[in-house]
Design a protein around this nucleic acid. Structure first.
Length: 423
RNA sequence: GCGGUCGUGGCGAAGUGGCUAACGCAUCGGAUUGUGGCUCCGACAUUCGUGGGUUCGAUUCCCAUCGAUCGCCCCA
């Protein structure tokens, strides 16, 4: 036997039993989105690499080492999408949604994303994100709506112990002034910082503040906060977002050191965390991206959004022992007593299915005993038996599995009878 | 890219440098010749991720490799 081909690393087969959970989660999310008036958008799984270089940021880890680039015959340089926002914004521009009737545009997506990383708990190479984007409004109420939507979804699943970490990373100008002040503090201690932070100083000094290394934390504990460098408008925006959140009763924690890993964020940045789901505690991340649409070649439009990992949501539910209801079992199993009855059984099963009854039969020529075991395993509510005498009389034996009661009924009346018994 | 742990039948899991590689679940057959969920009996790994080495002999020791998993980094 030759060696078999295995599933690519960091991907998973969603098997029966698991898929139903995903469907439940997706349905619930779609339902809530409808109530918030968000419409679904589906964009390609791959895009021009350039979209991600410009959209996500060339210096980010996601782009520098995690992008799956595609070999193609043509000139196009393509890549699998590592996140959803860039594609949605590209589509917004290309489909001229800035001119659409509904403004702002409120969109959501749910689907697979790809990042080349070492897999671990709650992290895969092909993973699934649900995310929303609101494009065309600067209103702080939209920031608060987006954050609350994420929270309400988690709450709808029954998750508790979540915290919203929020910050404002300001505008490009705000950051410029902050950056200068920050470098005045960082450069003198450059050599004492960890290796990662030394390279962060040049790429994005803001991220040094987010380092988990204790020594770096100590060295930077008096570093200027971005919040001190916000313009009056940015300050006003931020405080209004916070007051809206308070109005909704959503607790938050202002974390001046919170930095998002993608470059496009401006002003509001937030994360939703849950302790104890393994090493990764961030369930959701998002923020405002007022410069992104213009950066990608569109008419300047403000935007805000978030994304969360479906796998992480499932992991979080598991950690909190929240059961996902999964419907199992079929209505009727048709057991074949004699090979002569097979054709009749086959037709019967088809009739039941057409009548809206879920039905199954034996395809392995098993004995009655084994067929009843199969019916049991399928959690069949009823089992129908067709044997020689039933075949001769054009009847079937209908057995209710829970009670063990059985009766002989005309084959033509089975579907009707079962329908009424099942309703 | 770096580090820890692990890799035995469909699944879970014991085990030892050398007798037929435990056991549990599942599956199949029988006790019950047209009927399940309980019980009892029986069957089911020329083989211990893969390749190489040490050895009279390796699933057990060594090396490599692949994979899984957890963690670092980063992120959802």
């Amino acid at each position: 036997m030759s060696s078999s081909i295995k599933i690519p690393r960091g991907t998973q087969d969603l098997m029966p039993g698991q898929v139903e959970k995903w469907q439940y989660v997706e349905n619930k999310i779609r339902d809530i989105c409808a109530r918030y008036n968000y419409d679904e958008i589906r964009t390609p799984l791959f895009e021009q690499v350039e979209l991600f270089l410009r959209g996500v940021g060339e210096t980010t880890d996601v782009v520098q080492k995690e992008i799956y680039r595609l070999e193609t015959k043509g000139e196009e340089k393509l890549a699998l999408r590592p996140e959803g926002t860039a594609g949605v914004v590209r589509s917004f521009i290309e489909k001229k949604l800035y001119g659409a009737a509904n403004q702002p545009q409120k969109l959501f997506y749910i689907g697979p994303m790809y990042r080349y990383e070492r897999p671990q708990a709650g992290r895969f190479r092909q993973f699934h994100q649900f995310g929303v984007e609101v494009i065309g409004a600067t209103d702080p109420a939209v920031d608060a709506e987006v954050i609350s939507l994420a929270m309400r979804i988690y709450q709808a699943f029954g998750l508790t112990g979540l915290s919203v970490e929020i910050n404002s990373v300001g505008t490009i100008e705000d950051r410029k002034s902050h950056r200068a002040a920050l470098l005045d503090v960082l450069n003198p201690v450059r050599e004492e910082l960890c290796e990662d932070c030394r390279s962060r100083i040049d790429r994005n000094p803001l991220r040094v503040l987010d380092c988990k290394n204790n020594k770096c934390q100590t060295l930077t504990k008096d570093a200027p906060s971005i919040l001190e460098h916000l313009s009056d408008e940015s300050k006003e925006h931020f405080s209004t977002v916070l007051s809206y959140l308070e109005g909704l009763g959503i607790p938050y924690n202002v974390n001046p050191r919170l930095v998002r890993g993608l470059d496009y964020y401006t002003r509001t940045a937030f994360e939703i965390k849950m302790a104890e789901i393994g090493a990764v505690e961030t369930l959701c991340g998002g923020g405002r991206y007022n410069g992104l649409v213009a950066e990608l070649g569109g008419e300047d439009s403000p935007g805000i959004g978030f994304a969360f990992g479906v796998e992480r949501l499932l992991l979080a539910l598991e950690k909190q022992n929240i059961e996902i209801p999964v419907a199992t079992g079929i209505d009727c199993y048709v057991a074949i007593q004699t090979p002569d009855a097979k054709g009749q059984a086959f037709v019967l099963v088809d009739q039941l299915r057409q009548a809206g009854i879920s039905a199954e039969m034996d395809y392995l020529d098993r004995k009655m005993k084994a067929q009843f075991k199969a019916a049991d395993r399928l959690e069949a509510k009823f089992t129908v038996v067709i044997g020689e005498s039933e075949l001769a009389n054009n009847t079937v034996v209908l057995k209710e599995m829970a009670t063990g009661e059985q009766q002989e009924v005309p084959a033509t009346e089975l579907a009707g009878l079962l329908s009424s018994k099942l309703s």
